[in-house]
Write a protein that binds this DNA or RNA. Structure first.
Lengths: 211, 211
DNA sequence: AGGAATGTTTACCACTTGGTAAGTGAATCG
DNA sequence: CGATTCACTTACCAAGTGGTAAACATTCCT
């Protein structure tokens, strides 16, 4: 039994390293997503983590490298969230309904995640390209879904890419809405948002969709 | 005819001062709205204006004071934009349609304006409170409009304040959408946005509004 | 004209920023 | 056990930050 575990604590150092990096990434994603990349210094981050900023720079060579790592993580988590949404049961509008509900739920549960996506779209440069590259699996999957639905006449025919961008930015809008509600002092719930959104949609639908 | 104008250039100094301050506010609104408050230094701002940062600090005692002034200006411009939207012709849904179109047009013409509003909602603290205070004329006017429309049965009855917050955040969402489109390399036009939004709305409407 | 007020610049400062170099204590390995 | 690697800290630095003080040029007032 001694041969199986080579050291008293199985991979204790490597595990601790991975745990530390995960903690840093988590706090960084949260801070960057809610306060903005430039508004958060490495010292701030380190203070939140109870370590020194040099500990962060030990794991990533620069703040920018940390940002890239956070982008990777955010993209991964987005993929997981959306992947869950896209594998919902049902078909046609009932499936669409589940997906939309689920995405709104993400916007409420993880505002920092979507806020971060918005943040890097502002930083621009490589960052936005990186995201679209990392999200490729999701993009192709969503595109396939849209095209299938169009083929079967359940969605009006249009460019799937544009439709995806619209849906994507609508999610960002929902995230913004959550932030605005909190700023105004209303703690948003899924129910309240859905109710208000229903009002809003009938409002907008009549204005934009109706001839 | 000499008595009318007391100096060769009518109020030339005061006018130039006002013009300078207006230029600073304009560039600051643009930069803060697109890059974020913390991402823009006074030196950056001054460089864009072709002056020194101390010239800015002569007109406002601190960067924060400048931000407050920019907030005032943004609120004023928002009021003007929305005021124009609210004084659209027509009644009922046709009027709503005009308003929504006009607001989307603002989101496309002035992304920095709505981006800035989002920015200060992130900065939080007094800023968001200030905005709601400065927007009071617009809020009460919009509320009156909503209530009138509800009284006459043209909008389903609900809390006007909540409806306004929803409409407000929808505008922010539209601004985000414009940013995302530009990041993806698509220069948004009113037509393309309306077309895609129509698709999106029928998409969401069926999912969220339909029983 | 001459002095005062005004708008702006140059010079400067304390502090924070991201980042580097060297040192330290514990885990790992021979 | 002793040497080494590893995760991290202390000490430090150059550049940039918001902000102040004083010098300077222009416009205004009398």
């Amino acid at each position: 039994m001694a041969a199986v575990v080579t050291s008293p604590l199985k991979g204790s150092r490597a595990d601790r390293t991975r745990a530390t990096e995960a903690r840093i990434l988590s706090v960084a994603l949260d801070s960057f997503g809610t306060k903005g990349f430039d508004s958060v210094s490495l010292d701030d981050l380190a203070a939140d983590l109870g370590i020194t900023k040099q500990a962060i720079l030990y794991h990533w060579s620069s703040k920018r490298a940390l940002l890239d790592a956070v982008i990777d993580r955010a993209a991964l988590e987005l993929i997981i969230e959306f992947d869950g949404a896209l594998s919902e049961e049902g078909s046609g509008w009932s499936r669409v309904e589940s997906i939309v509900r689920r995405i709104f739920r993400v916007a409420m549960r993880r505002p920092e995640l979507l806020g971060f996506i918005r943040e890097i779209s502002r930083i621009g440069g490589d960052a936005s390209l990186r995201v679209t590259a990392d999200l490729e699996p999701f993009v192709s999957r969503a595109t396939n879904y849209f095209e299938r639905e169009m083929d079967e006449g359940r969605i009006r025919r249009c460019d799937p890419g544009l439709l995806l961008v619209s849906a994507y930015s609508t999610v960002l809008g929902a995230a913004t809405e959550v932030e605005v509600l909190r700023a105004v002092g209303i703690e948003p719930t899924l129910r309240s948002t859905v109710v208000r959104r229903r009002e809003l949609l009938s409002f907008l639908h009549a204005a934009m969709v109706a001839p």
